[in-house]
Design a binder for these strands. Structure first.
Lengths: 288, 288
DNA sequence: GTTCCGCATGAATCGATAG
DNA sequence: ACTATCGATTCATGCGGAA
């Protein structure tokens, strides 16, 4: 017979992922967000001297000064265990790579940010073209910043299948493995073997191989779904809060919503803002 | 009837590639070289806080001050149309990526160098390991510096045959790539393939996919032959002069010699210096 | 000659332990 | 407290020997 042990206790409040879209300038709109309230920031701000016709084009010598007040707000709203992923790449100015990204990293460190890692996004199908003294630019930076050395990271969620060699390797553990493990206690060795036997996946590296999005979303920046998806898996769990202060066509917030994360998006251009709003209305209509 | 137009003129001097190996500190040995005499510098200096047992290990806060006098000499000896390729990567210090490479780039620009490009060397077989807040580091920087905007570049020499490239590329697609490619990415890839069919050769991008050399050369740095080979093809012709101020196990000078380029190598460690000397003696014995 | 398979090892990084 | 050394973790690659 079933016994109700706590008949009058209220139901456990099930956290419901929310979506919050803010129209306006990032620097100002961020003021509406509470301190230490965001688990992950993933964004691709307008690059210097690019997308002039849509964003007004911040020149590369003003870029750092323009970005620092925003990154200061981002620092405030991010949880201590949170992560900030910044997708950026400097363009060529008078035959040289511009140095504003490096200057930005150095300046953000003075703000208190830790520059934890630099992931490389290898764009497998980069835009074709030919120049007399330059090849196609096939990569972008994905800068990881944190507030402290210990931050939330769920590595298992982005593991990938191992190579074929694993099967052969697992058949009979080589002497090398045994030798390398011999300093360990016996129990440790046994544990290690069991790890190997159940393992068919390997941890990825800090180089991501993704194609750029081909379908045009009426937004000039090509940002594949896989990019935010990967970082969302890696740095958040369900119901965590994800922020994109430069929402654009909404890739990050849409992916976050689909993955059961709460999403906050800020966008200054009304066209893009409404575009994303409509996207959410469409999915809401489908759900109800 | 054949008319000798200049019967007494001396025979046109056939330039003969030379090899010059200098034992000692780079900063001092470089003084022996003439101004504007080198076509290409390809080098991989000891990274900060690394290779302590062999090179003494320059700490990351002293690194820029240590390197600048050398890069000043390199600037002097490089031809105006020459190129300087610097292979380097910062390591993690107290949970953060060290910033000394960025500071070096900024300082070298003040010396007069143009920071033309940053190639990415994707190390397919990067060092394994697992850490609570970090994945394996699978890439290094290949910084391109020049003295002027117009420099010698032979793009055609590094073009890859289409079929071959596609074949190799497809063969090399790891499980990781396959899994991370969703349908969209595949369609993009396929679209590109159809484009390739109309052409014979393709220009590469600024991302290089190479494995580190595993065979032991009694030198701690893993530097595959393909790396200097690629840059030698791209930035030099036969009989041009190639310099490596941190010769190490001699990969760059040996490749340069095999490719019919003149090679100058500087190395401070007598063991490595003799190792390279012996390599050249061996190949000389084989030739004569 | 090929292909297959065993094997060592690499610019790594973190945390614990020792001086 | 601060630095130096050591052990544990882990995967793609090329070589050499074997089939």
């Amino acid at each position: 017979m079933f016994v109700e042990t706590a008949p009058f206790s209220p139901p456990i409040p099930k956290p419901e992922p929310f979506v919050q879209l803010l129209l306006g300038d990032s620097k100002e709109q961020l003021l509406a967000l509470a301190d230490n309230s965001v688990d992950l920031i993933v964004t691709s701000p307008p690059y210097a001297d690019q997308r002039k016709n849509t964003y007004g084009g911040i020149s590369h010598d003003e870029y750092v000064d323009w970005f620092l007040p925003i990154s200061e707000q981002l620092y405030r709203v991010l949880k201590p265990t949170g992560t900030f992923i910044l997708n950026i790449k400097e363009k060529v100015v008078e035959g040289e790579r511009s140095t504003y990204v490096m200057e930005l990293i150095l300046a953000m460190r003075k703000q208190g940010w830790l520059w934890t890692e630099e992931f490389i996004w290898h764009k497998k199908n980069s835009y074709p073209g030919k120049w007399p003294n330059r090849f196609r630019d096939a990569w972008e930076r994905l800068l990881q910043f944190n507030k402290q050395r210990k931050f939330a990271m769920y590595q298992e969620s982005v593991m990938v299948p191992m190579g074929d060699w694993a099967e052969k390797r697992l058949k009979n553990l080589s002497e090398t493995d045994k030798v390398r493990d011999n300093s360990k206690a016996k129990s440790g060795f046994g544990k290690n073997v069991s790890n190997w036997l159940t393992r068919d996946k390997a941890y990825p590296t800090n180089v991501l191989h993704l194609a750029t999005e081909c379908n045009n979303k009426n937004h000039s920046a090509a940002f594949p779904n896989e990019l935010p998806e990967w970082f969302l898996k890696l740095f958040t769990q369900e119901n965590d809060v994800v922020l994109d202060p430069f929402m654009g066509s909404g890739t990050t917030v849409l992916v976050a919503n689909q993955m059961g994360r709460s999403a906050i998006g800020i966008e200054i251009m009304p066209e893009y803002f409404e575009l994303v709003q409509n996207q959410f209305r469409i999915s809401a209509d489908r759900l109800f």
